[in-house]
């Protein structure tokens, strides 16, 4: 190609068109393809859990201890009716990028399900299936139900989501201790739940946090808790 003005203008135009096409493809990837992949991965994780639980039937005579939490492995399924009638997601141990592409992530080092302390879970607001897209609609009285294959745990949200900064790590303390001390509904140790996601939906400047307390538990052989039946 001879270096004419026409050739230069043409090449620059073609590069611009190529860059535009790349950006469109990236948006398609983020909005659509990550969701397809995440829904597939989450279904796989839920299937893995249900297979594992089906292989080890629960006998009321000797209640087996819940399985240990292994990094990167699913260990529970979360149900939140407020986020959708059929909303259920696997919970994996750990909050690495890879964990959060396969489901919700349990902060390693925080309390186990139903235990004294704070069971803390993070999830995507946008991309990868948008699990926590409707996070701001959570409010007092909303039930967050989890099962580890042995027991159903019903937590109840106590306050509307609290908007905070990314370094406010006190929110996942055993007794939640946010920077704004008046934000926490709790003053004494208990069995708590913390959910975190990002805010604004496509940004990373803030975090949204919702707290709940353990309301009730029941063995799986008694069937689903009332919160999921109504």
């Amino acid at each position: 190609m001879t270096l004419t003005v026409r050739g230069i203008v043409r090449t620059i135009s073609e590069l611009c068109v190529t860059a535009g096409a790349l950006i469109v493809l990236l948006v398609v990837y983020l909005l659509f393809w990550t969701g397809v992949r995440a829904n597939h991965a989450m279904d796989d994780e839920v299937g893995t859990l249900q297979d594992r639980w089906a292989r080890t039937p629960v006998s009321s005579a000797a209640t087996p201890a819940p399985a240990a939490y292994h990094d990167g492995q699913p260990f529970a399924i979360m149900y939140v009716r407020r986020l959708g009638a059929d909303w259920h997601k696997p919970v994996l141990e750990g909050t690495s990028t890879d964990d959060l592409q396969h489901g919700l992530g349990h902060y390693a080092g925080t309390a186990h399900l139903g235990a004294q302390g704070n069971f803390a879970v993070a999830g995507h607001r946008r991309t990868y299936g948008d699990p926590f897209e409707d996070f701001p609609t959570l409010g007092p009285g909303d039930k967050v139900v989890l099962t580890d294959g042995v027991t159903w745990y019903t937590y109840v949200i106590d306050k509307p989501p609290y908007l905070t900064l990314p370094d406010d790590i006190g929110v996942i303390n055993p007794l939640p201790a946010p920077l704004d001390r008046s934000a926490t509904p709790y003053t004494a140790p208990g069995r708590y739940l913390t959910l975190t996601t990002c805010d604004p939906p496509w940004g990373h400047s803030h975090r949204l946090v919702a707290w709940g307390h353990l309301d009730s538990t029941q063995p799986v052989e008694q069937g689903m808790p009332r919160a999921l039946l109504s």
Binding site: T95, Y107, R126, T196, H204
Partner: peptide
């Protein structure tokens, strides 16, 4: 930035 969903 869409991955930053944890407090850390």
């Amino acid at each position: 930035p869409f991955n930053d969903v944890t407090v850390n």
